[in-house]
Design a binder for these strands. Structure first.
Lengths: 211, 211, 211, 211
DNA sequence: GATGAATGAGCGTTCATTCAT
DNA sequence: AATGAATGAACGCTCATTCAT
């Protein structure tokens, strides 16, 4: 009666299981994100992630082979989302300045809402150590891709006169990236001293002094 | 009669031992700086610091009461140097813009030479955890002092027209601090893509768009 | 529908695990008692307890949060047993002398069988340090309770003429407590030179010289 | 002038040095006694002994080969004193009861003045562990010698009718030894609830119920 | 002889990972 | 699949002992 598993349609069964599996993985990632943000990579224990997710410690290992794999999966998921966001915003048919401002606004809004989750640069705020980063050079590809998107935007701005062509684009890119993985900005935002829109506006102006 | 019998100066003896002591402490700090920079606070073991310094583990504890005291001593030493540097540069009788440029140049030169050691804000790059920082609220005083110096510079620039008074000074301070505890800039500098002077010049210009 | 699917009793499962858990804890306590008795608190290492129990060091910490908690748990377990024993014996409807003799007999029988485990007074034989004892003033309550029980017995004996009312009761209590946390008596017993019954009889007689 | 050491009379020189040496050793023993009494053997560090004696740590090792040798020397010194004291008191031409009372009075007076220093039985109060004691079986000889002295006294009392001959002498010896390495008695004395003379009197009476 | 800096074995404790159930 | 008890390597720190000065 209860052992009929092999004969009935395996597909729905499978996909149900698979869906459940994915939900579990997503839950773990979500909880992991929170705990990593709060405590940093090293001080976060698998125990705490499991406890907050309401599952057993061993279950985490059914989905992620190690703590390192877990943080890498999290990084990839978030970076992919971030890349999509950049691509979408940069693809809008707006003047370059407005697209930049949109991007900053978006990032800062999220930071104010839930702390910095952008993880650009394998966000050092997470306490990711150089040694871990060195173990996964493949992850640099994401960073590169983001840099290229931003580079393209900068170049575009320099060709059409919106940006000063005398500043090397790599400096502009670096400045922008710095604005996106912010240290001191975060404090301004989370302390409520300034709104994301205001901050985005002011910083955008420093990119477009003449506008 | 029986106490000053040797007639030779007892001071050199003392100062020799003391000098050796200080050299040891300096060596430990130097090695600790390196390892903390490479691996972050938590992943750095006293064992490794001792091994790299060529001394025994116990010897570290003759100079620093705990790992925490070690990192705090390191932070204080570096921050004091940094504050002196800021004070000296900001006190020069130069237009505000040149003093700013000088400060950036100085910081970037050091970063290029030896990696970021400025540690502004209990540099999260070291992986210093919130819990550690909360245990030593006294250290926040250093940060405050630096912020005030920078704040003063910004205000001065806004009053004499060198800086745009319409941007809130706290945003300008945050931008400047961000430039001083640099994420992406570091890569540009250590990879040799740009010189400190160039970078300082370009970034300064973003503060003074009209000059 | 989906939760009680297995139809078999979930309780046995639970209680099985719980039983195993308790057995482990009991095993650890038992081994700890032995090692503490042999070496004293400070010289006993968790490593040795684990090794003798045939488990890993970490496993000890699944049951007791720290070495201190372990010794406290051991103390409480034994003192509770001891208090129950005193209360039961003192509650018997026998002449005071016989109850006293019964108590001594009981204690000495246990000492002969397994060494002194009474731990009265946070037994200094364990090498429990003053600093540890000071950290847990709550444990003094056990001692107080035992002293009060014994005090009551002595007072009773003095009122009904079984004991000499001219000796201050505190001296009698101290003498009796000394008999219960015995130094030299232990040697007599464990060396087999005397039986518990004989020792109890003789000592009882020194309390009741006229009977 | 100051290098005439080899030609002049070496004897006084030697004995001076020797006397100084012995004074140093005595000082160390004295301080060690204090610290061991306060903290127990294991929690006492050579560092603290040296510091309290006002000498360098290494100097302790010029006089005692190890921490264990130090505590053994201390034990021997004190036990020898104690044996002398027993011998002297027991040799007095007094009725046995008064000699016993004298002995108890003497021991309790010292306990009240400075805590228990008798160290009988390698006093477990010092936290001396069985393992240490087992390493030095030779020390048992002191204990044996004291037991024999006390045994003689007891036998004498039993032959001349002062003590009940029906109680085996070993029980009486054990009781007496228990009184001399006192646990609960110490509290009575140091808290001032009773004087040494009173305590000695009451306990003596329990040995001589009919007097 | 005296010093005290240096040593390094050893301890209590944590936690990523494994595995029997 | 899910559990969570068990594991054991690794860490921060202590302190008896040694040894260059």
């Amino acid at each position: 009666m209860d052992q009929q598993s092999t004969s009935s349609p395996p597909l729905p069964m499978r996909s149900l299981r698979e869906r459940q599996r994915e939900e579990r993985a997503a839950l773990i990632l979500e909880v992991a994100q929170q705990v990593f943000s709060e405590k940093g990579y090293i001080e976060t224990s698998i125990d705490e992630i499991a406890a907050r997710a309401g599952i057993a410690k061993g279950t985490v290992y059914l989905h992620f082979a190690s703590k390192e794999e877990l943080v890498v999966a999290l990084f990839e998921q978030q970076f992919k989302q971030f890349l999509q966001q950049i691509e979408q915003i940069l693809g809008e048919s707006l003047p370059m300045r407005l697209r930049l401002e949109h991007l900053l606004l978006d990032v800062y809004t999220r930071i104010q809402a839930q702390g910095n989750q952008v993880l650009i640069d394998l966000n050092p705020r997470l306490g990711l150590t150089t040694s871990l980063i060195n173990k996964r050079p493949d992850l640099a590809a994401y960073s590169t891709q983001a840099m290229e998107l931003i580079s393209g935007l900068i170049s575009e701005g320099q060709s059409n006169g919106e940006l000063d062509p005398n500043v090397p684009s790599m400096v502009m890119v670096a400045s922008l990236v710095n604005m996106l993985s912010p240290n001191s900005y975060e404090r301004l935002l989370t302390s409520g001293q300034i709104t994301p829109a205001e901050l985005a506006g002011y910083l955008s102006r420093s990119f477009f002094p003449n506008l």
